[in-house]
């Protein structure tokens, strides 16, 4: 018999879970977090975090078990609505579950080039190109100049 992988390292399960936490946008401009393949990075970061890691890992395991009890394929086989209900039902007993996931999922997701494009940002680092910004309002500047100390 094959061992079931620990929930954090079960790629299919984690893809489904992360797609629940940050789903694809209705417009299709933004991918779901699971579809971006971020679960290994999130799992690695959580496993290295002595404070958030253990409670999140326990919570993720609980989600996996609850989902398997409802569907033979677990979370990956459930509709998003049904999956969300499974997670919601466990938040009272695992209050750090979503917070802990988002602590590491948010950086991974919002620095991804596809996501940056989706939110209207160029998919590049700030340097070396930088950005243009609006000049100081000339009317405001004139008001200040009138108040200047000589």
């Amino acid at each position: 018999m094959m061992d079931t992988p620990a929930a954090l390292n079960d790629l299919d399960f984690m893809k489904a879970l992360l797609d629940l936490v940050i789903p694809p946008s209705a417009s299709g401009d933004l991918p779901g977090a699971g579809a971006l393949g971020l679960s290994p990075a999130v799992a690695e970061a959580l496993q290295a975090d002595p404070l958030l890691g253990p409670p999140v890992e326990v919570g993720v395991q609980a989600v996996q078990e609850a989902a398997l009890s409802q569907h033979a394929e677990g979370l990956a086989g459930m509709t998003p609505e049904a999956g969300a209900k499974v997670v919601e039902a466990l938040l009272a007993t695992h209050p750090l579950l979503i917070v802990g996931i988002l602590r590491y999922l948010s950086p991974a997701y919002y620095q991804h080039a596809r996501v940056l494009e989706g939110i209207g940002e160029p998919p590049r680092p700030p340097f070396p190109e930088g950005f243009d910004i609006e000049a100081t309002d000339a009317e405001l500047l004139e008001k200040l100049r009138a108040r200047r100390r000589a």
Partner: peptide, 22 residues
């Protein structure tokens, strides 16, 4: 920036997980 916005919004209860996230 986008990462800090997401985390700040989460901490203050302004950005939920799930359907209403985006």
């Amino acid at each position: 920036g986008p990462v800090q916005t997401a985390l700040w919004g989460m901490i203050h209860g302004l950005i939920p997980w799930g359907e209403d996230h985006h």
